[in-house]
Each structure stands twice: as C-alpha cells, then as structure tokens.
Measured scan of single mutants.
Amino acid sequence: IRCIGVSNRDFVEGMSGGTWVDVVLEHGGCVTVMAQDKPTVDIELVTTTVSNMAEVRSYCYEASISDMASDSRCPTQGEAYLDKQSDTQYVCKRTLVDRGWGNGCGLFGKGSLVTCAKFTCSKKMTGKSIQPENLEYRIMLSVHGSQHSGMIVNDTGYETDENRAKVEVTPNSPRAEATLGGFGSLGLDCEPRTGLDFSDLYYLTMNNKHWLVHKEWFHDIPLPWHAGADTGTPHWNNKEALVEFKDAHAKRQTVVVLGSQEGAVHTALAGALEAEMDGAKGKLFSGHLKCRLKMDKLRLKGVSYSLCTAAFTFTKVPAETLHGTVTVEVQYAGTDGPCKIPVQMAVDMQTLTPVGRLITANPVITESTENSKMMLELDPPFGDSYIVIGVGDKKITHHWHRSGSTIGKAFEATVRGAKRMAVLGDTAWDFGSVGGVFNSLGKGIHQIFGAAFKSLFGGMSWFSQILIGTLLVWLGLNTKNGSISLTCLALGGVMIFLSTAVSA
C-alpha cells in the first residue's frame, strides 16, 4: 500500500470489461488503480535517471590570480610587451599612462603600459546536455494484498515479495511487465516523455548541487567559461569578468580578483528545477510519464477462499488518510488461513446495510499462523458509518465519521480527471477507425466523469442509474429551450454510458 502517505494521489477506475487503462505517473504523486474483478494496485514513479550526459560548457565562479607582471614604455618608444601576453592562462590589459620627467621619461606624453596576471579557477559549475534516449524511469508497484503497516513504502525485498514489484522503462524499451506472483502480471506500455523539453534544458552542477536550467539563461551567464570537458589546462574565455584592473600608474597597475560568485548564482537559480546525482547518473524529480496498463493477466487472489471465522482485533486505531479513506490494521487469532476477511461498512448496526467501498479488493489472510496481521483500506461514505470486521458474535466494529460532501468530492474528481486527460493529450485517442474513435470517446468520458459518477451514484443499482439517464434524455427531447435540451441530452447520455461502463 504505497499511496496512503502521498498527498498527491489519483484514483483511476477501469471500465467494466476493459483490459487496459491509461494513467499519468508523476514525481511526488501516486496512482491507485481499481477495476472490477482485479486486485487494487498502487503505482508510483520513484526516480527518473539520466546517463551519458555530455559537458557543454563550464563557468568559473571563484578564481585566484598570481605571478603579476607589468612592462611600460616612454612616449615614442613603441608598445610595451610581455611574453605572458601569448599565454592563455594569463589575463592581460594594455593601456596608456601619462609619462614625463617625473617618472623617468625625457618627453612628456602618453606611454604604453601592459599588465598580466595568471588566472586560476578555484571553483566552477558545469552544464551538461541531456539526450531523451538516455532517460530511465523506475516504477514501483504494490498490490493491496496481505501486507501490514511495516511494509508500507518499503522498497527492500521486492524481489521475493509477490505484493510488490519494480520495473524500469526507457525510450528504447518502453514496454515492461511486472510479475506479482499469485496476482498474475501487469503489463506497462509507457510513452517516455517527461513533459520537459530537454532540447531547451541543461543539467547544471555547482558545488555538489544540481538544477535543470534553460539553455539561453545558461549561455548568457557573465562569467569566465570554457567549452567542452575539462582537459586539465582549460582555456578560459572572458577571464576579465572576475578580474579587475585598478587605476594605472606610470610603471605598474594593481590587479585584484573578485570574490566568489556562488551567492549571486544561487539567487539567479531561484525557482529552477532541482535535481540530484546518483553516482555518474543524474536524478530528476520533475515531469511525468504516461503509461497504458494492460490488466488482462491480472487476477484476484483468494476468490475461492472461505470466510475467516475466528476473532479479529484492531492492532491500531483506524486512521484517516490524506485522501479521506480509512486504513485499518487487524490481527487474526485463527489458524484456518488462508481465508477471506469479512469486512464491510454499514450505516447502522441493526440492518448492516453496506455503504462505501473497499479500496483493498478481496482482502485475505494468507498465513495459517496465529496472530497474522493484515492492513486494508476503505472508502467510507460522508457522515457517520460503522466499520464491521468478522462474522457472528466475534465481529468487531468501529464508529467512523467522514466530513465533507459527495458533491465536493465529485467536483474534485472531475477536475482531476480533466487534468489527466489534458496530460494524456492525443495519445488517449485513436482515429484509425470508426470503432477506435468511439472507443476513445468512451475512454475520455470515463477518465473525466467516472470518479464523479461513482461518488454521486455508486450506491444505486445499474438499472436505477439507466432509468435516471433515460429520464434526462426524455426531458431533453421534450424541452423547447435549446440549451436546457442539449444539457439534459448530454447528461442523460453520459449517465447511461457510465452506468453500463463503470464497474460497481
């Protein structure tokens, strides 16, 4: 259960009878995928790494000078000259100064003066180019299975845990398959586009800190620079940016070097996208990844198990997540596992009318040892309800109150669905055939309105939902006002479609 501690969480529900669903994975976010007769899966884009970055340009932001020398000439005696002028490691300046009897010249006039100092770069920052084909995306998957609280967001041991898996995709191999043991396998067909235009970005490294910066900004930095990788004795261009020549006297000129420019660069980098280094690879934390999940090989585990009949206890007080759902960790005293956990939410304890829904599909106890633990997640209705676990006299209950409203949740879900469709863009549509167009249209309606429909009408039977949709269509056909007619027709059509397409 990876997503319960992530604030940016998206719930995606598969269409009834569908074998695939489109998701948008982004750094700092987590996606929970639910479908009829399929286990619930949490998917998170953990890291995006980039390798084989080529150094484009380096800037010196802290330097020192040494070996200063000057040469001067009297008027009419030609130009002052130093051998160091031809050495690229030196920074030199030529000027004219007033000369006369007082400073060793027989004539009054302008004399030539040249001053040089050896330039040494102490600290530099480097910009590297990123090729999209060198990106690698690491995705962690977790099935809502027989897990306890100690396994949440624990990325170790996934090789031997059938509840978890790690997959890596690249532009050259965008397809992967996550093996989930008894739950089958989940196929991923990803489109490795981060949403960032790397043709316009460089990877900047300064003092063990890293950013993504725009090329134009990078090339306009007014500091000494050299092109390409460091060859040991780089040729620094624009050395004068960190060196200041003071007022010249008759035979000498003082040279000083400016202080470190790291603070000024940090100020200019305010708002830039931060990154990290992992050995020789860069780690990015921006952008998104679009994936199509193929769920035809994914299956529920323990459908044929019998119900657990022994007593359950709450190991922890049920807690609310950031998303309005409830996490419950229970301990089973029996030894008759594997068995299914009898769990439901009810409005009252007399009729036990089921409300809400299970995020953890078909929760089971897989071990036959005593005191096995299991964590599950529920989506309670707004208002008061009861969490009921167990059967008969051994069942345990917990009162729950959820604040908020169904309308607010439906609106929030619609906005999130619209954002998801905007990110998917043209990849969500198939114009290759008439059937493809209608299929894409259905998927689009489901992406945007599916979660809201589930919130508003999830407790009704599909037949009642179709009746309401048919009534809206009838009202649309018999209303003389054009805008009201079109609105009723659209709402009725969407409702009829979703009542037959969205899983219960």
Rank of each mutant, 00 (worst) to 15 (best):
C3M: 09
S7V: 00
S7P: 14
E13Q: 07
M15W: 15
S16G: 01
S16P: 02
V21Y: 02
V21F: 06
V21T: 00
D22T: 02
H27E: 05
G29F: 13
G29Y: 12
V31N: 05
V31K: 05
T32K: 04
V33A: 10
V33Y: 07
M34C: 09
Q36F: 10
D37L: 12
E44Q: 11
L45S: 12
T47I: 09
T48A: 15
A54T: 10
E55K: 10
R57S: 02
S58D: 13
A63D: 09
I65Y: 02
S66P: 09
S70H: 06
D71T: 05
D71K: 07
S72Q: 07
C74K: 09
T76C: 08
E79H: 09
A80R: 05
Y81A: 11
Y81E: 10
S86M: 05
S86H: 04
Y90F: 09
R94M: 09
R94L: 11
T95V: 08
D98H: 07
G100P: 03
N103K: 08
N103P: 02
G104S: 12
G104Q: 07
G106S: 00
F108W: 10
K110C: 07
K110L: 01
K110S: 04
S112A: 13
S112Q: 04
S112N: 12
V114P: 02
T115W: 11
C121W: 09
S122L: 14
S122Q: 05
K123M: 15
S129L: 15
S129M: 14
Q131H: 05
N134Y: 11
I139R: 02
I139D: 06
L141E: 10
V143E: 08
H144Q: 10
H144I: 08
Q147F: 10
H148M: 03
S149Y: 01
S149E: 00
M151R: 11
M151H: 09
N154E: 14
E159K: 08
E159R: 02
R164C: 15
E168G: 04
V169A: 09
N172A: 02
L180Q: 08
G182K: 05
G184V: 04
S185W: 02
S185Q: 14
L186I: 15
G187F: 05
D189M: 10
D197M: 14
S199D: 14
L204H: 07
N208R: 11
H210Y: 15
H210W: 12
L212D: 09
V213Q: 07
H214K: 08
H219Q: 14
D220S: 02
I221S: 02
P222R: 02
L223D: 11
H226A: 13
H226R: 04
D230A: 05
N237G: 00
N238R: 09
K239D: 06
E240I: 07
E240M: 15
E240Q: 02
L242Y: 07
F245V: 03
F245Q: 07
A248R: 05
H249E: 08
K251W: 01
K251S: 01
R252I: 07
R252E: 05
Q253A: 07
V256R: 00
S260P: 10
A264F: 11
A264C: 08
V265W: 13
L273V: 15
E274Q: 13
A275N: 02
E276W: 10
E276C: 14
K281P: 00
K281N: 07
K281M: 14
K283G: 03
K283S: 12
L284C: 13
G287M: 02
L289V: 10
L289A: 02
C291T: 02
R292Q: 07
M295H: 10
M295N: 11
L300C: 03
L300I: 12
K301H: 14
G302L: 06
V303T: 14
S304W: 03
Y305H: 13
C308W: 06
A311P: 10
T313W: 06
H323R: 14
T325E: 11
V326G: 00
A333V: 15
T335P: 13
D336M: 13
D336V: 13
V343S: 00
M345G: 03
V347I: 13
M349G: 11
T351N: 14
L352P: 14
V355A: 15
G356C: 04
R357M: 03
L358I: 05
T360V: 03
A361N: 05
A361I: 06
P363C: 05
T366I: 05
E367F: 01
E370Q: 05
N371Y: 02
S372V: 00
M374C: 13
M374Y: 02
M375T: 01
E377A: 01
P381V: 00
F382C: 10
G383T: 02
G383Y: 06
S385V: 12
Y386N: 07
V388R: 00
V388W: 00
V388Q: 12
V388E: 00
I389W: 12
V391Y: 00
G392I: 01
D393E: 15
T397K: 02
H398G: 00
H398E: 15
H399T: 02
H399K: 02
W400T: 08
R402N: 11
G408S: 03
F411P: 04
E412F: 11
A413K: 09
A413M: 11
T414C: 10
V415I: 07
R420K: 13
M421H: 12
A422F: 00
V423H: 06
D426T: 14
T427Q: 04
F431E: 09
G432W: 07
V434Q: 12
F438L: 15
F438N: 01
G442C: 03
G442I: 11
I445S: 08
H446I: 05
I448T: 07
G450E: 06
G450I: 07
S455L: 14
G459F: 04
S461R: 13
Q465L: 04
L467M: 14
L471N: 12
T479I: 07
I484R: 01
C488K: 03
C488T: 10
A490W: 13
A490N: 12
M495Q: 08
I496H: 11
S499F: 12
T500M: 11
A501M: 13
